[in-house]
Nucleic acid binder design. Structure first.
Length: 886
DNA sequence: CATTCCCGCCATCTC
DNA sequence: GAGATGGCGGGAATG
């Protein structure tokens, strides 16, 4: 339409729209046209003070919001008109305008006079909420996917006549709700509310996982207490408490929940670590969804959102800033009509707060969409999990190169965070220090573990096998928190919905997870590290041909390395902090290993290699050796492969002095801590050692990716660029504690818990140490044969996805890329030494990085939100070992 | 004085 | 190095 006129009667009861040709245009049509504003040019009706002005864009100068939408885009005008006609909308506007009508009308009318309104223009006219409203008016709530829903920031900024900066604020919030997604620089794609329900459902779930409601409750109590008590004292207490909460629950971590269809498409953007506004927005929304009277007071929200570890008081400023941000977010949420401003009457009087007025119930619609609901929706969790699973795929972490984003589970984030911390402070330290208040090492580990454990609940084997799960209540440390207790249980049962949900089903096939189920050990998270780099290249050592790292599990009680050691190690090699920790129990069980670990890692490794050669594939699970554990080797032909590998490794080791150094460093810091080394990470080539360090987690690989990967792999056989291998060694008396779990499995497991035969089988399988990943990797390396039914490598498969995993991996040599597997004990703490089930979260993502556009496969791990580090995609050179040695 | 929150400086990131 | 993003907090409207 060249022209569209809109007529609205005074009552606003009738709204008519005419196109130039005089035909009547249904609102819907108009809405559609909105998408292509450009087609609508020239003039349109403008609603000013409930009166329609027809004609060319002669708009009243700076009139009221309604009338004065600057950019006079026909579409926007139409939208406005429509909204004007809608009582609801009008109400909204009233709200936005607070007092409103009177005022608005005044202002709006006055403007007509002229620009003088400049001054008249009250702040409100420039408010983010209003701006957002204008913005929303330009797009339909439910856009036709077929149409172009592209949003150009520049255009918007221009049309709305605001600085870009403002647009970013809006976009960030909308993005957090997946109402838009960034498609490219300066461009966003409009999704409207199509994904809103799904998003909210997921956010709610996540919020529950974080126990936000509880936290809020605590905070409220505290505030109350505070009020009555002296500030000073209370403060301390409060701080402590807060910390605990943070530590335990890991609220701190920033994580952004992505939806399957809405992942960030701009690779560049993805890497951006700081998505605080986005994350804040999501968290804020979570608070509403989790709280019962869906009312959240600003201060409480701010406190919770201050992810700060140190709950401390510097907060004053922080708090203020947070509140500012919350207002920003609240304003757009208000314009979305998701929340309303209210005041809660508290003892002290009234407190600003917001009430959720958006949808409250989130059907599984979404679920059904995404997945074939294999699992009966027993719990909401079940349904949602699906969605969340998908989300997983979309974590925040995406590799720059790939664009894939993955959802990072909050717990993972915590882990990452802790890891980061470790890195910073204790590079070599095996344990990741938690920010627990107590400087005590023991405490930290515990806290960290707790957190992780909590987080990792996902795919825990436990869920799969109840029997295995140690029902033991949290350890003493945990006992500290009353809440802690819940954790274990929660993990087992309550939280089934939790993290698991996040695991994207799609990814499952691609991402194998190792679940070492040793009794003593805690859950482990496996990270498949793509070739992510750390943020600062300078720091990292020159690429070495091969770097080997062993990860040890820190005893939780173990002392974490101190700053010195950390610093030292850090400087030297910037060795990655080992994210893996292990319970001492494991050591005990293992027996000898503890010592091994303490000695130089390199030595140990070598020793192990030797041992391997010797052919001791003994049952001894402790896998510290570089070489593959017997478990892995079990597969026919595996032994040979192992040897090869070992040899190659040795060679590499020999060559690499750096590696040794690193190991030494690691060792130094970790000595005592090392309980057992479970992981060895090998990576070759250009990757700096640090690279190995788990920067983040994640990794959902989509099937597509997988497919593409396969395809690529074939094509790129010669182009092996990535050569990162990680071997996970299982420790423990049992030879093969590790369990393989695919995301899928995980997912399935939950439901299956009850008694799916599958689950049982899997449980049994748990014994097998090698994860699909390993198999995959090994196979790729050619270390092992792909086929080995029943062998340790055999991956337990869920019926559904089993195919993917089980499907014979490409012949060993076929794949050149290797994945780095990172294993980290999630939360050893609660786990009893004896029985604790290991929970493993699969964090890793991309296994292979090829120069090619395998990107999908490759995932980058980000550091916890905090660290500025971004994952960098690093081209790696071919792995000699693979080719040559094998 | 408290509540809101606009504005835009400026650090980061990307390209 | 320019442009894109967006964290952040001063301090101005408003209440």
């Amino acid at each position: 339409f060249s022209f569209i006129y809109i007529a609205l009667n005074h009552n606003n009861s009738h709204l008519k729209m005419f196109s130039t040709d005089g035909g009547f245009v249904a609102p819907q049509v108009l809405v559609k046209t909105t998408k292509t504003p450009k087609t609508l040019t020239g003039s349109c009706g403008v609603l000013v003070d409930n009166q329609i002005t027809m004609g060319p864009l002669t708009t009243p100068k700076k009139g009221r919001e309604v009338g004065s939408v600057d950019p006079w885009t026909p579409t926007s005008n139409l939208k406005m008109l429509i909204s004007a006609a809608s009582p609801e909308i009008r109400n909204r506007e009233k709200e936005l305008c607070m007092d409103n009508d009177g005022r608005d009308s005044l202002e709006s009318t006055q403007p007509e006079n002229g620009e003088e309104s400049e001054k008249m223009i009250s702040r409100k006219e420039k408010s983010l909420g209003l701006l957002c409203h204008k913005f929303l008016a330009r797009y339909p709530d439910y856009p036709n996917p077929a149409l172009n829903n592209d949003i150009c920031l520049d255009d918007v900024a221009t049309e709305l006549n605001v600085e870009r900066r403002r647009i970013y604020d809006i976009m960030n919030v909308l993005e957090s709700l997946h109402m838009v997604s960034r498609s490219a620089k300066n461009r966003y794609t409009w999704h409207g509310r199509t994904k809103l329900a799904e998003t909210l459902a997921i956010l709610k779930q996540v919020g529950e996982e974080h126990r936000y409601s509880q936290q809020m409750q605590q905070i409220r109590q505290r505030l109350v207490e505070k009020e009555f008590d002296f500030d000073g004292e209370e403060k301390e207490n409060e701080v402590a408490v807060v910390d605990l909460e943070n530590g335990e629950h890991g609220q701190k971590e920033l994580f952004f929940v992505e939806l399957p269809g809405v992942e960030f498409k701009a690779a560049s953007v993805n890497s951006r670590k700081d998505k605080s506004l986005r994350v804040m927005s999501q968290k804020f929304v979570m608070l509403f969804l989790v709280s019962n009277p869906r009312v959240v007071s600003l201060d409480v929200a701010a406190k919770i959102l201050i992810g700060e570890d140190q709950a401390a008081d510097q907060d004053k400023n922080k708090f203020k800033t947070k509140v500012r941000r919350l207002y920003d977010i609240a304003n757009v949420l208000r314009s979305l009509k998701l929340i309303e401003k209210v005041h809660v009457a508290e003892e002290r009087g009234r407190k600003p707060a917001f009430e959720w007025v958006g949808l409250d119930d989130f059907p599984q619609v979404i679920d059904s969409e995404n997945t074939s609901t294999a699992c009966p929706p027993k719990k909401k969790g079940v349904l949602e999990p699906r969605a969340s699973a998908d989300n997983c795929a979309k974590n925040l972490f995406s590799s720059p190169g790939t664009k894939r984003s993955f959802t990072r589970h909050p717990s993972l984030i915590k882990l990452a965070k802790s890891i980061q911390d470790d890195r910073r402070k204790i590079n070599s330290a095996p344990s990741s220090p938690v920010k627990s208040k107590t400087g005590d090492v023991g405490l930290k580990p515990a806290a960290a573990e707790a957190n992780t454990g909590y987080v990792l609940q996902l795919p825990t084997p436990t869920s799969v096998e109840p029997s295995r799960i140690p029902l033991q209540p949290p350890t003493q440390e945990q006992a500290v928190n009353t809440t802690a207790n819940p954790i274990p249980h929660a993990l087992l049962a309550a939280q089934p919905s939790g993290s698991v949900a996040y695991i994207p089903a799609q990814c499952s096939p691609l991402i194998p997870v190792l679940l070492p189920q040793q009794r003593g050990s805690g859950p482990y998270a496996v990270y498949l590290n793509p070739s992510s780099l750390r943020s600062n290249p300078l720091a990292r050592p020159q690429p070495t041909s091969l770097a080997v790292r062993s990860m040890t599990f820190e005893d939780k009680t173990g002392q974490s390395p101190n700053g010195q050691s950390a610093a030292k190690s850090h400087t030297a090699a910037d060795a990655s902090p080992s994210g893996v920790k292990r319970l001492r129990s494991e050591l005990a069980s293992e027996g000898s290993p503890s010592k091994d670990t303490s000695p130089k890692l390199c030595e140990i490794l070598q020793a192990r290699l030797k041992a391997r050669r010797v052919g001791q594939l003994t049952s001894r699970p402790s896998p510290r050796a570089l070489h593959l554990d017997p478990e892995f080797v079990n597969t026919p032909g595996g032994a040979v492969a192992n040897q090869t590998l070992e040899q190659s490794l040795e060679l590499l080791l020999d060559r690499e002095e750096k590696v040794v150094e690193v190991l030494k460093e690691l060792q130094g810091s970790e000595d005592d801590l090392l309980v057992g080394v479970h992981l060895l990470i090998f990576f070759c080539s250009t990757l700096p050692i640090q690279t190995l360090i788990p920067a983040g987690y994640l990794i959902p690989i989509s099937q597509q990716s997988l497919i593409s990967y396969k395809e690529h792999s074939k094509d790129c056989i010669n182009n092996i660029q990535t050569t990162e291998l990680t071997f996970t060694l299982s420790t423990g008396s049992r030879p093969a504690p590790a369990q393989e779990i695919t995301p899928t499995n995980l997912r399935l497991q939950r439901p299956a818990n009850a008694a799916s035969p599958q689950a049982t089988q899997q449980a049994h399988r748990l014994n097998s140490p090698s994860p699909a990943i390993l198999n995959f990797t090994l196979q790729n390396l050619g270390l092992i044969s792909s086929s080995s039914p029943g062998s340790a490598f055999a991956t337990p498969q869920t019926p559904e996805r089993a195919n993917t995993l089980t499907s014979p991996l490409p012949s060993p040599l076929t794949l050149q890329q290797r994945a780095m597997v990172f294993i980290k004990p999630l939360s050893p703490v609660h786990i009893q030494q004896t029985v604790s089930p290991h929970q493993v979260a699969l964090i890793g993502h991309s296994f292979f990085h090829t120069p090619v556009s395998l990107s999908p496969l490759a995932a980058v791990v980000n550091t916890a939100g905090q660290s500025s580090t971004k994952t960098v995609h690093i081209p790696q050179r071919k792995l000699d070992v693979t080719t040559d040695e094998s």
